[in-house]
Amino acid sequence: MIKIILSMFVLLASLSAEEVNIYTHRHYPSDEILFEKFTAKTGIKVNVVQANSDQIMKRLEEEGKYSPADLLLTVDAGRLYYAKQKGLFQPIHSKFLESVIPAHLRDKEGYWFGVTKRARVLVYNLDTVDPKTLSTYEALTDKKYRGAILTQTSANIYNQSLLASFIAHKGREAAKAWAQGIKDNFARKPTGSDRDQMRALAAGMAKVAIVNTYYVGQLMHSKNFSDKAVAEMIGIFFPNQDENERGAHINVSGIGVTKYAKHKENAIKFIEFLCSEEAQKVFTSVNYEYPANKNVAPSKLLQTWGAFKEDQIDLSLLGKYNAEAVQIFNEVGWL
């Protein structure tokens, strides 16, 4: 009996030679479209397990050198950094990738590559806020915003990375002061998703919310009438744009070849495909993310928000300071 089962597994494993196995955190419709396109184009079958990053990374780590996964696709640079630290990736070289993905959006040694960009920006209530009065993330700690700021909890990885970028730029103390200042200005105890922050904002509960750009896009294109209404009542603002400022905080979703990939060639092909013009256009138009490929323009919708200066910080630092950021959140009570 056991032998039969064993041989079945061996059989299954040997059935499809041309394939690539992906562990992914991303749960967006754009990705499903791209997996299909890749298979159509190359004949390589894409096998996917989609689960929460931290847990799927643990699975990859535990499976070790026998893991079937060839690729790890995840969101947040901090996690990519962490995966590299844990030895889950191997470095790869690709002339194409190195030429189209800007240096600050990929690992210097080729362990991982950013595939899409998203900015964590300010959105404001069009009725009550004049965008001219907005300037920087730091300005939000001002007393005039008491009871006027909305954002997610500190469990949110994008908030963690935003604070990590503060630590990287300005040191722990300044970062803590900022977190404390934002916390003191909360309109309410953080709850819900980025979308929920914008809904509350549109409802007039606060003046400004800190959210990721693609959620704004999703709201604008929602089939739900009330979400569309929400999108019409809010404006988007890229902070820290002045000449002496560092630019709006950006984050990536990125991908790397696993250390023990069995289909390394296919894996590299897949990454190149994701960064190709064709795929990048899908990301930006279906999921409202900014392309990581510098030769591809953002979708029309994203263009209407205007070009912006982005924080060019080494994204690995977001990972390096992640735990410290969580500690600061705990200390100031931004929970």
Binding site: H27, V48, V49, A51, Q218
Partner: peptide, 25 residues
């Protein structure tokens, strides 16, 4: 979510994927 084999979807994982993409409808 985390234990499933490749390409294995259930009603709950489908629900979650969509809900997580905040496509509640």
């Amino acid at each position: 979510l985390v234990l499933r084999p490749f390409n294995y979807e259930t009603l709950a994982t489908k629900t979650y994927t969509l809900a997580n993409a905040q496509m509640l409808q």
